[in-house]
Design a protein around this nucleic acid. Structure first.
Length: 382
DNA sequence: TCGAGTTTACT
DNA sequence: GTAAACTCG
């Protein structure tokens, strides 16, 4: 669900946007619809009615020679209507990850909590994964547990407060930065709507095509969080443990898979699709294609994140890394950020169970530049 | 009013 | 490098 449907915001020439910043300008200027009113109580069963219905089901089962009624509702329902399918019956494994709370009540609590304080420092804090300064609304929005109109309306109230004397001078731009995140969802939604082929194909065509390295062992190490690059491994392990990953870290692990491992972004997209509780085709595809330099938004330079620099900048004390990579818990942050430069002996002394880097970043960086040059039909040696 | 050339900005 | 707005004749 979006505030503005995919046809509503177009360039002055009538085309769908492919550059976010222009899209944002129009999106933010446009009037937003109010949240739909909640449905009236009448016609919805109250708790007592529901309990009575479950009891009645149990009675029916008993009459047919089924089990007694004084069981937990799920068992009573099972007895009455037969066996309800489990995840196993449906062909899914039990999830390994701890999933957060669900439902509209939890979503509203989270929204209120976020807009009460954190949003006023959102721009300054949101890139530091250890600080938990993001909204964590993605899964709720994805499943419609809360509507984007309700969320947006609440940000407008926060904006009014940000513009009052009660908050620092820079508060409005902090709130706006969060509103931009809502606009990003809608930008990628309209990219997908107008270009459905991007689910499997590159948005941006390369003249020759990209020849991915696609080394299965490297991709497997990335998925396990055993690349020897601490911030990458922390992110991949957070994904497994929580079915979630901080957004800054998503960009880092995506750059690492595509530019350091030279693996097709679709491997990453498929893995995220499998593991992320907030997986959304439009958003994840947009993010992955952006990381792989096959997506929207013309870039003035070729983007390759340096995983050490990113770790140092956004997790300076290695708090996030240590939370998710227990092998590194006893180490000084400085040593963690120098992991790629340590000798085998130093590594064995510091953290014997944590792997050495599986690739050399500067080598792979050069290789990536050459690979994309060839994809453009250019000679990498020039 | 339109196309060509110019400017601007890029999660 | 390139999309999209802006400027101008």
């Amino acid at each position: 669900a979006v505030l503005h449907d995919p046809d509503a915001i177009r360039t002055n020439a009538g085309d769908p946007y492919s550059v976010y910043s222009y899209y944002w300008k129009k999106w933010t200027d446009r009037a937003k619809g109010d949240p739909a009113p909640a449905p009236a109580d009448e016609g919805l069963a109250d708790e007592a009615t529901l309990s009575a219905a479950v009891d009645a089901l149990g009675d029916g089962a008993a009459a047919d020679g089924g089990e007694a009624t004084a069981e937990a509702p799920a068992e009573a329902v099972d007895a009455a209507v037969g066996h309800l399918p489990t995840l196993d019956d449906l062909g899914f494994a039990e999830p390994d990850a701890e999933i957060g709370s669900a439902g509209t009540e939890a979503a509203r609590e989270r929204l209120d909590e976020f807009l009460d304080e954190a949003v006023f420092a959102y721009e300054a804090e949101r890139d530091y994964p250890a600080r938990e300064a993001t909204s964590r609304l993605s899964t709720f929005l994805k499943y419609g547990e809360i509507g984007v109109r309700e969320a947006y309306a609440a940000t407008e109230e926060a904006m009014a407060e940000a513009e009052s004397d009660a908050r620092p001078e820079d508060a409005p731009e902090q709130v706006e930065e969060f509103q931009q995140q809502l606009a990003w969802r809608e930008f990628y939604t309209q990219v997908l709507f107008h270009n459905p082929e991007v689910v499997t194909a590159n948005y941006k065509e390369y003249e020759v095509g990209i020849e991915w390295r696609d080394d299965p062992e490297e991709i497997a190490a990335w998925k396990r969080g055993e690349t020897g690059y601490p911030i990458v491994d922390a992110g991949m392990r957070q994904l497994r443990e929580e079915a979630f990953m901080h957004n800054r870290v998503r960009m880092i692990v995506a750059s690492f898979l595509t530019k350091d491992l030279l693996a097709d972004w679709r491997h990453g997209y498929d893995h995220f699709r499998e593991k992320l509780a907030d997986h959304d085709t439009a958003n994840d595809n947009g993010g992955w294609q952006w990381a792989a330099s096959t997506g929207t938004d013309a870039q003035p330079y070729f983007r390759i994140f340096n995983p050490m620099t990113q770790g140092e900048r956004y997790d300076p004390d290695a708090e996030y890394i240590k939370e998710h990579v227990p092998e590194l818990r006893g180490l000084d942050a400085d040593l963690i950020h120098e992991w790629h430069e340590l000798s085998p002996t130093q590594r064995a002394n510091a953290a014997p169970k944590y792997p050495a880097p599986i690739v050399d970043h500067s080598e792979r960086r050069e290789e990536a530049l050459a690979m994309y040059k060839r994809a453009r039909g250019e000679d990498p040696d020039e």
